[in-house]
Structures are given as structure tokens and as C-alpha cells.
Computed example of a mutant assay.
Amino acid sequence: MTVSAKQAQRIKVLLVDDEPNILQFLELGLVNEGYKVAAAQDGQEALSLAESFSPHIVILDVMMPGMDGFEVCSALKKERPVAVIMLTAREEIEDRVKGLSLGADDYMPKPFSFAELLARIQARVRNQFPHLLEEVTIGPFSVDAARKEFRFRERELDLSPTEFELLKHLVFHHGHVLSKSAILDRVWGYDFGGEDNIVEVYIRSLRDKLQDRDHKVIRTIRGAGYRVDLV
């Protein structure tokens, strides 16, 4: 699933890097994709811009003079619900662990592919700001997160709130096997005190509403969990 140019117009990306060539390259590429972009060359400027620009995504270089990317990430995460993708020329595992522990949502070493960075931006938007996408089409599914509407092969599905969240989680992660425990954590919450067979009950209901009698849409992967295939 990709973010369309129309959808990208709702998404603000703040670029932070002390190398002008990288900033220009990223800004031109993202603007061409439709995103709203602001750029900063140091940490203080980035924090100031974040106040006025209110970005959804921050592409943040680690190695900068003065305030480094770790400090900027920590400050941003304390102030606003922003997704941070950190860039670094250093590949040490310790750096990645430090960035993630400070709240970074993703990590990419330099040099990087613009196509891969774009895919990671889109993944962060889908996971953290799905309301910005409005209606999204994924294979035979259409989901409007704002209106809580789901369609399958042009047919609107009558779903309960929990069924909606479960199907959305499965569809947004299509092609991946999701365990019952992972589904419980994401859809029902970490503090859910019930039995994990509740997932089976809801999967059965979704299959009925999808008319998925042969289990070709929501597949059971024995001993592992469930996987949605776009058929």
C-alpha cells in the first residue's frame, strides 16, 4: 500500500541534517511526492521549526555539531506525537539501540535509497497517523479509518468496532503472519485479561462476513497465527 500524492499533501515532514546537499536531495524528492517539507541544518533550528511547522514525520541525522540527533529526538518526543526516522553514517548497534531507546521509530544507515526511505515514511504514516490517509485501498479492501468503514470487493462490511480494528490490523500487515499474542496486544491492548481464544472467535466472525469459507483471505498458519492474502 502506497501513500498517494493527494494523501501526501496532508503530511508534514521535517528534515534535519547539517549537510546541505542531503537536505536539498531529500527536500526535492519529498516535495515531488507531494509532501509538505521544512528543513533545518542543526538541532536548535529543528526544535524551533517543530514548534511552528508541527511535523508528523522527522528525518533526523545523528551526527550534527552542537546538539546531536539523539538530543533532538529526545526533546521532540517529549513535546509532540511525532514519528522520528534517524539517519546515520555510523552502523554500530549501540547507536541504533540508543536512538530507539530515546523514542526513535526507525533507523537507516547512510548511504540510503530514497525509495526505501519513502517506504519507511509511508509505513510510519500508516502505523501512527492513519487518520491522515482517509480512505485507503489495499488489494480488494478499502478502509476509511475516519468513518470506520470497510469494503471488500466493493461490498461494505457490517463490522463491530473490534472487528474493524482486527481486520484493519490484519490487512495493513498483509502477507505477514501475526501471532495471537501480537494481535491481542495490538487490538485488545496489553492489559487484556481474557483468553487468547477470543481471537479465534473474531477471526471466525470476520471470515463469515468476508464470505471466506475456504479461508483463502484470512489464512490460518498452523502453530504461528494468521495471515491475510490479497486475493
Rank of each mutant, 00 (worst) to 15 (best):
F70N: 08
A5E: 07
H56Y: 10
Y202R: 14
M64G: 09
L166A: 06
G103Y: 09
I59Y: 01
Y226V: 03
P109V: 15
M86Y: 02
V13A: 03
R222H: 10
E116D: 13
L167I: 09
H176F: 00
E45M: 11
L118A: 10
E165D: 14
P20S: 12
E33M: 05
I203Y: 00
V201P: 00
D208S: 15
E163L: 13
G175F: 00
R147A: 15
V72Q: 05
G69A: 11
E92K: 12
V199C: 07
S205P: 00
A83P: 02
V201S: 09
S52Y: 00
V37K: 07
V13G: 02
R10N: 10
F25Q: 05
D158S: 14
N21P: 00
K77N: 11
A104D: 01
V58P: 02
E33T: 04
S52Q: 07
G69S: 11
V125E: 05
F141C: 10
L167D: 02
R155S: 09
L178R: 04
P161H: 10
F172M: 13
V72M: 06
L230I: 14
A119Y: 07
A115L: 13
A89D: 05
K168Y: 14
L47V: 09
H174P: 01
P140A: 09
F53C: 00
I22C: 00
I183D: 02
A224H: 12
V62G: 03
S101M: 08
G189D: 05
D214V: 01
A5M: 09
Q122K: 07
R219G: 01
S181W: 01
M63Q: 11
A89F: 08
V3E: 04
A89I: 09
H169L: 11
H56P: 10
E27Y: 02
D95H: 13
E135Y: 02
V177I: 13
A75R: 15
E51R: 13
V199F: 02
K12V: 01
R186K: 15
L206W: 06
S101T: 12
A8C: 02
E163Q: 15
L102A: 09
Q41D: 11
P55T: 01
M67E: 11
G103R: 06
A75T: 12
G225C: 05
R96C: 14
Q44R: 14
K209N: 04
I221Q: 07
H169C: 11
L230D: 10
R126A: 07
M108I: 15
M67W: 08
E27K: 15
S113G: 10
E19R: 10
P140T: 08
E45C: 02
W188L: 15
E195L: 09
I22M: 11
E92I: 08
G193E: 14
F192M: 06
F152R: 04
D212R: 00
D18M: 06
R213N: 12
V125F: 03
V58N: 03
D185K: 15
L23M: 07
S160I: 00
F114H: 08
S4H: 04
D191F: 07
T137E: 15
I59A: 10
K78H: 13
G66P: 11
I203H: 03
R120V: 04
D95Q: 11
K77R: 11
G103N: 08
L60N: 06
E163F: 04
L23V: 11
L166M: 13
G34C: 09
